[in-house]
């Protein structure tokens, strides 16, 4: 999963400090693995270098100085492209897909589109596997079946998420 795209997406709703970003990320996506601030810092530096964010201002407070980041037009395009690109169907994809869906909801994009696109991608893989299975021997069939069942599980998750998008939107935008 791409932390850079996620942080970029979080910036779409308005400029934030690095610590704000970490807190927002942890709250929405980092349920079991909170970000280390160092990760935020290095990621933001890379984004800054690539021109996807700019420094909106520096606050000198009681503690260390804090940079406020804002997303650029290039940054928005980058997030859009990332969201629209289906993930390569592979096991344990949920966290990335989940992040994408939530981000889409947060940025008022069509989350159902993301799910449909992803389903299509999954089906494409399943078709290839099904085809291989039909032509292959028993060993091939069993191997393909294993993959197919995993993909099917993903797809079921996609369907379920699609059915619960309205509730999810309510939860994440609260």
């Amino acid at each position: 999963m791409s932390i850079g795209h996620t942080l970029l997406g979080l910036l779409e709703s308005g400029p934030r400090h690095g610590y704000d970003l970490k807190r927002a990320f942890d709250e929405k996506f980092g349920h079991d693995r909170p970000l280390h601030y160092g990760q935020v810092y290095s990621t933001m530096s890379r984004l800054l270098k690539n021109g996807l964010v700019v420094v909106d201002g520096i606050e000198a407070g009681g503690g260390p100085e804090r940079k406020r980041y804002a997303i650029t037009d290039e940054g928005i395009t980058d997030v859009q492209r990332w969201l629209a690109t289906p993930e390569k169907p592979e096991p344990y994809l949920q966290s990335t897909l989940y992040t994408k869906v939530v981000l889409a909801l947060l940025t008022h994009r069509d989350a159902a589109d993301i799910l449909d696109t992803q389903r299509s991608e999954h089906l494409r893989s399943m078709r290839i596997l099904t085809d291989r299975k039909r032509k292959g021997d028993l060993a091939d069939q069993l191997i393909c079946d294993h993959a197919l069942f995993h993909l099917e599980a993903d797809l079921r998750w996609l369907e379920l998420t699609a059915a619960r998008l309205d509730k999810l939107r309510e939860a994440v935008t609260r």
Binding site: A112, D116, T117, R119, S120, H122, L123, M126, R127, L129, T130, L148, L151, E152, L155, R156, E159, A162
Partner: peptide
Amino acid sequence: THEARVAAYSDREIVVRDGKSRDMERIV
């Protein structure tokens, strides 16, 4: 069908949601 493994026997799929259809091939 609503089963992905059955749909996997197809060449392409169309998704119907709320009475509207989406032809996934034409969009991608």
